[in-house]
Design a protein around this nucleic acid. Sequence first.
DNA 1: CCCTTATCTTTACATCGTAAAGATGAGATA
DNA 2: TATCTCATCTTTACGATGTAAAGATAAGGG
Lengths: 240, 240
Amino acid sequence: MGKSDTKTETARLARPPKKTASAARPARRQASAKAETPYHHGALREALLQAAERVLERDGLAGLTLRAVAREAGVSHAAPTHHFGDLTGLVSELAAIGFRQFNAAMASACDSATTSLSRALARPKAYVAYAQAHPGMYGLMFRTERLDYSRPSLHEAAESSFAGLANAIGAMRQEQISGDALTIEQGAAIARAWSMVHGFTMLLLDGRLEDILERLPAGTTAEQLLEAILKSTVTGKLPA
Amino acid sequence: MGKSDTKTETARLARPPKKTASAARPARRQASAKAETPYHHGALREALLQAAERVLERDGLAGLTLRAVAREAGVSHAAPTHHFGDLTGLVSELAAIGFRQFNAAMASACDSATTSLSRALARPKAYVAYAQAHPGMYGLMFRTERLDYSRPSLHEAAESSFAGLANAIGAMRQEQISGDALTIEQGAAIARAWSMVHGFTMLLLDGRLEDILERLPAGTTAEQLLEAILKSTVTGKLPA
DNA sequence: CCCTTATCTTTACATCGTAAAGATGAGATA
DNA sequence: TATCTCATCTTTACGATGTAAAGATAAGGG
């Protein structure tokens, strides 16, 4: 009766019943996260985060549940609770990882830019490219109500992401962006750039740009559309 | 044991046990949606949609569940299924209503604009204003993975919304936007405007513009920031 | 060597979406 | 009018999820 938990979920664990002799304990860190560690995993927290990212990119945001992550990592469904408190905790830590990945991608994109024009285009293009390569992560970072920004790791990673954007805009305007005060023009420039690229990304990931793309000359890609947008913006034309 | 459904949810219905005499049946449509209709409601579908909107704006997207809507409407938890099939159905119909509200707001905003500049600003301002007035609805329309665009009502309402945007851009460029083909410049102009205002709205609703707003001169509102963005865009300055 | 404590598992429960079967009444048909 | 049919709504049931609480197990220090 009821209580399907017990039967359904316990079955797949198939832990050897006793194992009093502590024989095995193989290498204490497998890197494959494939779970051969009985009881004390040794690095469950990291394993759970990696499992969560896999689940997220495989099954989408809706599939990212505590129990699914626990299954993916090969532990009991309540194991994540001890490390993250609740779903919000797990999701927030994963989002922090996403922001760090994202920041790294942006930094490396800016480095490999030479001309002033290419520097103006490199950042937004890398932005969209990251989102396309990690749609689950980007969705997690920007569309989940279940994020706890009071967590230091997430707060810091997101803050750093914002600072990178602000600095890039400042560099483009050949100004120094101070940390604590902005003119209305500076704020508008930052908000405008962020809104544009974030909005484009969201619409793209949601498939809402398809209507436009299929009306364009055959074979036009989203990247080309983005480039056209950026160039017309940089050139200074065509109001919204 | 278990099966808490029965006790917990049935309790609050408190339907008079028999009532074979069909005495009451008051007016068949209450407009208050307050549920005094035994068994056959008469207009449950509309009542459920109104209840859903109330729940959405009160408890947010996470609170918008089939059972919560049924409770709000005063019917059994399975009643919505008959009218909408599943949660996706209910949510999609509600989103269609949102798009129609939105389209009406946009249309009325455009009508009440005189100068060319005010016409360029009226639309995006009304866009953001709608989202701020109905954050739940806007979130539902644009951030829910659970929308079924194959439903005619939703498809049509969203399509009409897009057409309105495209036409506004076309008018601004003094061009005729044909329904089935776009130049790359036209597509870029549409995508750019949409991305900007959608991105701004999302960031604003998510509270992610707070970092910027609080660094601006004291008391600067989101509307003023938006206006600064739009003006600098119309004037043609400051690349992204 | 035992005891404390962190880690992980079991068990339990409320809630949710959804399916299926039963109850009820509205309208058509005779 | 009496009955039949069918749309509408309720009950019951089940699997899934998040989370709390208690139990099991090992790690490490006294």
